[in-house]
Simulated scan of single mutants.
Amino acid sequence: MTNSSMDFTRILDELRTGVKSEFTLEAENFPEFFEVWRSYPYQNAIVGEAHQGGKITYRKSDEDNA
């Protein structure tokens, strides 16, 4: 696991629990984020919306399964 300036697990947990309303991921951080995302146990609780330029905004799903 690489050292990161962002704790993606914490960010995902904050989205899932409502501490954060959204998180925008820059394209250059996606590979590192994906390594966390692929093993995150509550993927269904978070949705992502892609934007031009490779940015993705993540937020809590309306159908929270967590």
Results as ranks from 00 to 15, higher is better:
20 K>D: 11
12 L>I: 01
40 Y>P: 03
63 E>W: 04
30 F>M: 10
38 R>L: 05
50 A>Y: 06
39 S>V: 15
21 S>M: 14
2 T>C: 06
27 A>G: 03
1 M>K: 05
1 M>L: 04
13 D>H: 04
57 T>W: 06
9 T>G: 08
62 D>G: 08
37 W>H: 09
22 E>A: 12
56 I>T: 06
11 I>E: 11
23 F>N: 05
3 N>G: 04
19 V>R: 12
1 M>Q: 00
10 R>Q: 06
24 T>P: 05
18 G>R: 12
26 E>R: 15
37 W>P: 03
19 V>N: 10
42 Y>P: 02
9 T>P: 00
57 T>V: 07
39 S>N: 06
53 G>P: 07
15 L>N: 01
29 N>C: 08
33 F>E: 01
29 N>G: 00
55 K>T: 11
42 Y>K: 10
37 W>I: 05
58 Y>W: 12
9 T>Q: 14
16 R>C: 06
56 I>M: 11
6 M>E: 04
26 E>Q: 15
58 Y>E: 04
44 N>A: 14
11 I>P: 03
1 M>C: 03
45 A>D: 15
11 I>K: 12
35 E>N: 08
25 L>R: 05
46 I>C: 03
64 D>Y: 08
51 H>R: 09
43 Q>M: 12
34 F>H: 10
28 E>D: 13
30 F>S: 06
43 Q>W: 10
48 G>V: 00
66 A>D: 13
26 E>P: 04
39 S>K: 11
26 E>D: 14
44 N>C: 11
55 K>E: 09
34 F>E: 05
4 S>K: 06
61 S>G: 01
63 E>A: 10
50 A>K: 11
30 F>I: 07
9 T>F: 13
51 H>T: 00
8 F>Y: 15
65 N>V: 06
50 A>N: 14
45 A>R: 02
18 G>N: 11
44 N>F: 05
59 R>Y: 05
30 F>E: 14
9 T>D: 05
63 E>M: 05
43 Q>R: 15
53 G>Q: 14
21 S>H: 13
54 G>T: 13
27 A>N: 11
21 S>K: 15
29 N>Q: 15
32 E>C: 04
27 A>F: 14
48 G>D: 00
42 Y>S: 07
4 S>A: 08
46 I>K: 01
25 L>H: 03
16 R>P: 01
20 K>L: 15
58 Y>M: 09
19 V>P: 02
4 S>R: 09
21 S>G: 08
14 E>W: 10
11 I>S: 07
9 T>C: 03
24 T>W: 08
35 E>R: 11
51 H>W: 07
63 E>R: 10
7 D>M: 11
1 M>F: 04
55 K>R: 11
32 E>R: 13
50 A>D: 09
42 Y>T: 02
33 F>R: 01
55 K>G: 00
13 D>T: 08
17 T>Q: 10
60 K>R: 15
35 E>P: 03
36 V>Q: 01
24 T>G: 09
37 W>R: 03
48 G>N: 01
52 Q>L: 11
42 Y>M: 02
20 K>R: 15
43 Q>G: 12
20 K>P: 03
60 K>Y: 01
20 K>T: 11
44 N>W: 07
6 M>P: 00
28 E>Q: 05
54 G>L: 14
5 S>D: 05
23 F>Y: 15
3 N>D: 03
42 Y>E: 07
52 Q>D: 14
10 R>I: 00
31 P>F: 02
43 Q>D: 07
34 F>M: 07
20 K>F: 09
33 F>T: 04
35 E>T: 08
